[in-house]
């Protein structure tokens, strides 16, 4: 059972306090978007063995959504950060590179 530190309220939250929200940093496509773009937005997801960026909500706590970078193989949590961003913070990316040289995820590496 996983634990994450909520970047909003600082609580060291147990998985039972949280709601998993799937992949992070997905760009929304709405009316006017091509079929391919819309399909990608709605259905296409990463399924990495290793570094992954996810959305979680501290639902039984402060109620805020946040993002987490996690290794799907070892469950190591590289860090959490607020959901109000388009990409992970630089220091987190550096930390992941230090721990998992050569990693890549979508267009990040």
């Amino acid at each position: 059972m996983l634990t994450f530190e909520c970047p909003c309220c600082g609580a060291h939250a147990d998985e039972t306090e949280l709601h998993a929200g799937g992949e992070a940093h997905i760009k929304r496509f709405g009316p006017g978007a091509s079929d391919d773009d819309f399909e990608g937005y709605l259905f296409t997801r990463e399924n990495p063995k290793g570094v992954h960026f996810e959305r979680w909500r501290h639902v039984n706590g402060c109620g805020k959504w946040f993002h987490a970078a996690r290794c799907t193989m070892t469950m190591e949590v590289f860090g959490t950060y607020p959901a109000q961003t388009f990409q992970p913070p630089k220091d987190l990316l550096d930390k992941i590179t230090e721990k998992r040289p050569g990693w890549s995820w979508r267009d990040l590496s």
């Binding site: 929200g21 929304r28 959305r55 639902v59 109620g63 805020k64 959504w65 959901a83 109000q84």
Partner: peptide, 13 residues
């Protein structure tokens, strides 16, 4: 309510 919060917090913050 959760649906509203999700869109407000993660898309139209």
């Amino acid at each position: 309510h959760a649906h509203m919060e999700e869109w407000l917090q993660t898309e139209w913050w």
